[in-house]
Simulated scan of single mutants.
Amino acid sequence: MDGTVRAWVDGWVVSRGAAPPVVEPWGFTIDMGLAHHVTRHVLSATNEEVEEDAVRKVADAVTGSGTWLKVFADAATISPWLGEGWEIDPAPGRLMTRRLGPQETPASVPDDYRLRTWSRGGVTRVMVAAPDGSLAARGQVAPTGATAVVDQIETSPAHRRRGLGTLVMRTLTHAAREQGAETGVLACTPDGRALYASLGWTVTAPLTSAKFTGRP
């Protein structure tokens, strides 16, 4: 079992308020309880260790729509192993990590923007408000001991390329380090990968997301 995957799962369920993960022979089952996201299955293997038999076994056992499958391998590899009713997210994800050092310091807030940080339920959230009061950027982090999962980073289109993504990330990693975390973990889309790479995050594995919509 990949320790990075376990760390991501443990932090993600705290960040999203999901049910505690159920450990399976092949990974984890997480209940979300949402119509569009009832349950997710996360395979613990990464890269070349992902086995076709395990993916097929998990995918074939799903019968209800709204179930997601997370596999840490390329979509081109995973796609032939999924049966009818599975739709792969076209945006290729990545699992990324970064060591958090004592130098984790927040960035400066641009003029006329407002930064707000608060913690509740084990999750630290950051909001950046635009000069007119609208949402400019946001994000959250869930420390779970030595690791912390950064999650739901977002910058509004009208406020991009102003350093707000960096501001949010540095604020979150600083908060995580203050709570004892030594390693950061996140799952990203192509839109965020360049930002994270510029801040020292490195790719551990590709991430393919597939949603079950029901068989004909």
Rank of each mutant, 00 (worst) to 15 (best):
S15T: 06
A59L: 08
I30A: 02
G192V: 05
T63P: 00
G139F: 07
S79Q: 15
T147Q: 04
G83R: 10
A61W: 06
T105I: 09
A158I: 01
D2L: 03
E104N: 05
M169G: 01
T155H: 03
G83Q: 08
Y113K: 06
D2W: 05
A146T: 09
Q140P: 02
T144C: 01
D10E: 15
N47W: 01
L172P: 01
G121N: 13
L135V: 12
E49T: 13
T97D: 08
E182F: 00
E182G: 06
Q103G: 12
G133D: 10
A130D: 10
K70S: 07
W26T: 15
A197R: 13
T208M: 05
A129C: 13
I78L: 15
F212A: 07
I88K: 06
A75W: 04
T171D: 06
R215W: 08
D60W: 07
L100P: 01
G200C: 14
R125I: 02
D53M: 05
V123M: 09
R161S: 12
R215V: 14
T208I: 12
V150E: 00
V42R: 03
G184R: 00
R120C: 06
R125E: 15
I88R: 00
S79H: 10
R177E: 04
L115G: 08
G66P: 07
V50K: 00
L172M: 05
A61H: 04
V58A: 07
P90D: 12
T29E: 14
W8D: 06
